[in-house]
Design a protein around this nucleic acid. Structure first.
Length: 228
DNA sequence: AATGTCCTCAACCGCATGGGA
DNA sequence: TTCCCATGCGGTTGAGGACAT
């Protein structure tokens, strides 16, 4: 029986190997998946001849070995996308990763903590300081939607007051949640009780946080561009 | 060159979720 | 409806490299 080479604490199954993966282990996993595919992570390590748990194999495959994974530094575009999405979604790394082809949630999470967190924090503070030293940045109904970008409101009515019906007819608005579901029911839209206008370089859109049931579900509301 | 400190990122852990029995 | 198991997710850890002294 092979002793654990764990470098991180104890393990329930001492024969399981832990820590960094060797090139030989990578090859075994790749060869097995290429031949048999992914059908059950629990049996994969044994079948592939690996002294790893299924979870470890899955993580290694998903974050490093699977085809299409990009290795290396993230581009400035990717950085900006992560900052924007994190502003909208918070620490929902898998959702953010799904919008960056070839990047994994783990990579984005690490990158955020090591590179982008400070940057984003400083930028956020600077924006608040410049526009509103009190830090209380609320929607101003006397301003246009453009002037209110980056602001937070509290009611659907505020949004209605600001939205330009000529440009984006209210009846043609729809919401898309982060799973891709589309909502057009006005009642559903009205039930969303907090609204904010986001900075966005390409399109004008607003985001809402559905606080029904105590859940802070992110919802993206955007004008149906095809209707314009 | 040796040592200490900081930083990065791969990997682990615990919990949540979803599907099937 | 409940339980069990596999998978997914996000927070955290720690090895190792980079850099400073």
């Amino acid at each position: 029986m092979v002793k654990s080479t764990s470098t991180t604490g104890t393990t329930k199954k001492s024969w399981l190997k832990k820590g960094s993966w060797s090139p030989e282990e990578d090859q075994k996993l790749i060869a097995y998946i290429n031949r048999y595919g992914i059908w059950n992570w629990a049996v994969t390590p044994k079948a592939a001849g690996l002294l790893r748990c299924g979870k470890s194999c899955r993580l290694r495959w998903m974050n490093y070995l699977r085809p299409g994974i990009k290795h290396g530094n993230l581009s400035q575009e990717e950085d900006e996308t992560i900052i924007n999405l994190h502003h909208q979604l918070g620490n929902r790394w898998s959702t953010i990763a799904s919008r960056l082809p070839g990047r994994t949630d783990n990579e984005i999470k690490n990158h955020w903590h090591t590179h982008l967190k400070k940057h984003s924090f400083l930028q956020g503070n600077q924006a608040v300081d410049n526009e509103n030293p009190s830090g209380d940045h609320q929607i101003d109904n006397n301003q246009t939607i453009e002037e209110n970008k980056g602001s937070c409101g509290s009611t659907y009515e505020e949004l209605q007051n600001l939205w330009d019906p000529e440009l984006f007819p209210m009846e043609e608005l729809y919401m898309v949640d982060d799973l891709g579901a589309t909502y057009t029911d006005p009642g559903f839209l009205v039930s969303t009780s907090q609204w904010g206008f986001q900075e966005n370089t390409d399109t004008t859109f607003a985001s809402g946080y559905d606080v029904n049931d105590g859940l802070w579900d992110y919802l993206l509301m955007e004008a149906n561009e095809e209707s314009n």
